[in-house]
Design a protein around this nucleic acid. Structure first.
Lengths: 341, 341
DNA sequence: CAGACTTCCGGAAACGTTTACACAAGGAGC
DNA sequence: GCTCCTTGTGTAAACGTTTCCGGAAGTCTG
């Protein structure tokens, strides 16, 4: 006794030293065999056997310290309960997996503190890069992003001068598409249920809605604001219906639209006969509802895929100039606005 | 020249050496100041200033190698598109955040290879512990779990002899609750839309349904199987309606139930008048639908919270005996089965 | 059989932190 | 003025890997 666990880690688990000692070889040889590079047949056999016997599991942290890579990518998102982020995540995951890396998701609950803390923590090298889709962009976000030691790609609008890879869409135009569609269908009293006006998408969609309404000569006086959730959408619709008689509603995302649909049906309105409905993001939620909800697609899968590619490119070459991709919105017409069922 | 970036990391970023050199102190002092322990007023000032000047960001990997902790917890889940996992995640997150750690989520897409690869990779020390909710449990899962160097907690059924902390529910009884409720409401032709029979929940719910039907003297001959997704639920319901005339449908989860609801409404059935519907998991989806869907709650928040606590306890003391928590199911009655709207 | 090449191996130095330990300086107590 | 304690500092050893480098042994060529 006394020499037991001599080469083990602090917690008693075997290390490469343990394996090497048991196999009667140097740690260099053990390491080589365990990584499958070099080693004579006999050495390979002995090391493999020793590793299996002691149940050796490499310590990835130590390996990463040496290799300067972890093989992990993070996707930080504000509300993973929103299917649009799930769609993005799936697209990102596909690209990331293809590169042999693993994707981790972090839900920030949209708190600025939490988001920057995340950047501070993960970006301290636990991951090789991260994709982040903030709905609010503060100075501290920007500072954290530019100071990050690992590459960061942003999905969403970003001030032009920030030198960070960036995939954006144009939800201003997206909101306008919805209005145009409803106006063309003869709707004249179009309401808008938006998310918070201190968010980037909130202001863009508000601007798009107002501009399109003006263009059609209609007044934008039926606007309700809540957050981007189902419950808020339902509540906003109830407030709206209590004070006005819209014949169409544009919603700033699909969660809000589903909430609005619920409020409409509960209060006996027919959709789309009495009130037409258009959501935004074109998530699976829009298809799962009955009637199915027309929705402005902002190309979430495409944005996810592009963001992943930008990130991998930058990991491959840190000196690339900052790039910027733009994905155009498009309208998907379904039953809720009088399209085909 | 020649001595420039002498103390920088390989990638040119400043290290604690860089900061120490610039501040004219030893790396020990620099480290102490940066961690907020000790240091004279003058030293603190100089180090802080130097760190800010060079934009020092600590390398978390190196720190973790030394401290043997990362402060990260992982939640591995099969399909993050299913709201039940989002609910669990939120509950876990709350507990984990309280302990000052950060939660990461990994969606495994239910592939065994991916799940065990995950265990192999993350559990190699990138995280301090992980919670996993597999719907299939294979030998390779069990092996990976027991060999894991970091604590693992399983949400879901597990063979009794596996010495792993475990939070389970009883979805067998859950399915029976649904049948009892429908039978009590006078439904006599009860169908069942289940998930795959090679999954743990799939077999449990099948057994529960059949047992309850037998107990009520009804034959369990209207059963359709798909996967646990919306599309499968809708397709299964369509198959069912093409060959039979149920007056009630039990669904193995809420996604399936929403799919079934859609199929029912499209084909002109009234819910609950013609066909009553009960889902399972009691996710927000059940409340977002119209009519709202009755659902068997399996206490996902509670299970998440318990799992997180078990994990933290085990991280605190690895020698604890394996523990097992059980959460009972309960029925939440809504409009789709004739409850209150 | 001499030399040139190849293959395999072990020692030791990294990777960027934290921290145990030793030591110096300064103040308080007698 | 001596000891004793406190406070601050620096040196160096960890943490568990990978990998560079030099040397030993074996193989091929002419």
């Amino acid at each position: 006794m006394g020499r037991k666990r001599l080469h083990d880690a602090a917690d008693g688990r075997p290390t490469v030293h343990t394996v090497a000692a048991r196999a009667g070889v140097s740690i260099a040889s053990a390491s080589r065999v365990l990584n499958g590079v070099g080693g004579s047949a006999e050495t390979v056999r002995r090391v493999r056997e020793a590793a299996a016997a002691v149940g050796y599991v490499p310590n990835a942290i130590a390996r990463s310290l040496q290799s300067q890579r972890t093989g992990l990518i993070a996707f930080a998102v504000e509300d993973i309960g929103n299917p649009v982020y799930v769609a993005m995540m799936r697209a990102i995951e596909a690209v990331v997996a293809e590169s042999g890396r693993q994707l981790l998701v972090h839900a920030t609950s949209g708190q600025v503190a939490s988001e920057t803390a995340l950047l501070r923590r993960l970006a301290h090298r636990y991951v090789d890069g991260m994709i982040i889709s903030p709905i609010r962009v503060t100075d501290s976000h920007i500072e954290a992003m530019t100071a990050s030691p690992v590459p960061v790609v942003v999905i969403g609008q970003l001030p032009d001068e920030v030198p960070v890879d960036n995939v954006r869409t144009d939800s201003r135009t997206g909101a306008a598409l919805a209005v145009d569609h409803l106006a063309a269908a003869g709707r004249t009293r179009i309401a808008f249920l938006n998310g918070p006006l201190d968010t980037v998408p909130g202001v863009a969609r508000d601007a798009g809605f107002r501009a399109a309404m003006a263009r059609h000569g209609m007044s934008a006086d039926m606007i309700e604001v809540g957050d981007f959730q189902y419950a808020a959408g339902r509540a906003a619709a109830e407030r709206l219906l209590a004070r006005a008689r819209p014949d169409a509603i544009v919603c700033a995302n699909d969660l809000i639209a589903v909430g609005a649909l619920h409020a409409l049906l509960v209060s006996g309105h027919r959709v789309p006969e009495d009130v037409a409905l258009v959501g935004m993001d074109d998530t699976e939620l829009a298809q799962m509802s009955y009637p199915q909800i027309s929705s402005v697609s902002l190309g979430s899968e495409i944005r996810g895929r592009l963001a992943a590619r930008l990130l991998l490119d930058r990991i491959g070459d840190a000196d690339l100039p900052p790039r910027r991709e733009q994905v155009p919105p498009s309208l998907v017409i379904r039953a809720s606005s009088g399209g085909v069922a």
